[in-house]
Amino acid sequence: MNSPEIMQEDFSVHYTYTRSTGPVIGDFLTALRDKKQILGIKGSDGRTLVPPMEFDPITTEPLSEMVDVSDQGTVTSFCWVKNPIKHHHIQHPFAFATIRLDGADTDFIHMVDCGDEARISVGSRVKARWADERSGTMTDIVAFDVTGA
């Protein structure tokens, strides 16, 4: 007796989450896309918070005073990724770094693409490398390049 034909099909479950970014993060992402501009926001204590926060961490009041900050800054700390895995955006060795952008009072986390661990240190000057096609996401900044020691 022949065994019955078994119907089979590959099936992988996936789903795209969406995000409603709200007024503050929405403005931040829109400025990345449309103006290659990084925005911060003034907190109640006068600090410029980057990326901007929707609610003040001290008073919980909604924040609204957006501030342009530079796309250049100084590395305050970093972690060298020697063996990137397939989910990393950069497929050769790079650094995840906290960067104090000029004009900001808080650190911003992004990737520094400098090829060699010896080329980055705390205090290195870096500049954003912008994507040619931008979509209003953090990867509109491809990475930061080291511009000086």
Partner: peptide
């Protein structure tokens, strides 16, 4: 769909209304 607010904006809206009803601040 409340596309006008983030998750933070959404929970803040409810919390703020509860505090107002209670006559309290954060």
């Amino acid at each position: 769909a409340r596309k006008d607010v983030s998750m933070g904006g959404l929970v803040n809206e409810a919390a703020r209304r509860a505090l107002e009803d209670a006559g309290l601040g954060w």
